[in-house]
């Protein structure tokens, strides 16, 4: 998929654990894992907003667009 999720990178930069983020955002660890692995089909604006607020970042820091050839 051309959309890459850089949640792992941002989490490492913030030195935050997945479990902690899941608790703050209010989603399950399983769903966060789906999001991190890129298996998610869609992300709700409310979830994205909560993640950005928790990690103090912009949506562009988490989501990245790449072409298939790259």
């Amino acid at each position: 998929m051309p959309i890459i999720i850089n949640l792992d990178v941002v989490l490492a930069q913030r030195k935050m654990k997945s479990k902690e983020l899941a608790e703050i955002v209010g989603i399950t660890e399983a769903n966060l894992s789906i999001l991190k692995s890129g298996k998610a089909k869609a992300v709700r604006f409310s979830t994205l907003e909560a993640i950005c607020e928790a990690l103090n970042c912009q949506p562009g820091d988490i989501l990245e667009f790449t072409t298939e050839s790259e």
């Binding site: 989603i27 769903n31 966060l32 789906i34 999001l35 298996k39 998610a40 089909k41 869609a42 992300v43 709700r44 979830t47």
Partner: peptide, 8 residues
């Protein structure tokens, strides 16, 4: 249903 389940 799958799409809905995979919407986070």
């Amino acid at each position: 249903q799958t799409e809905n389940d995979l919407t986070i």
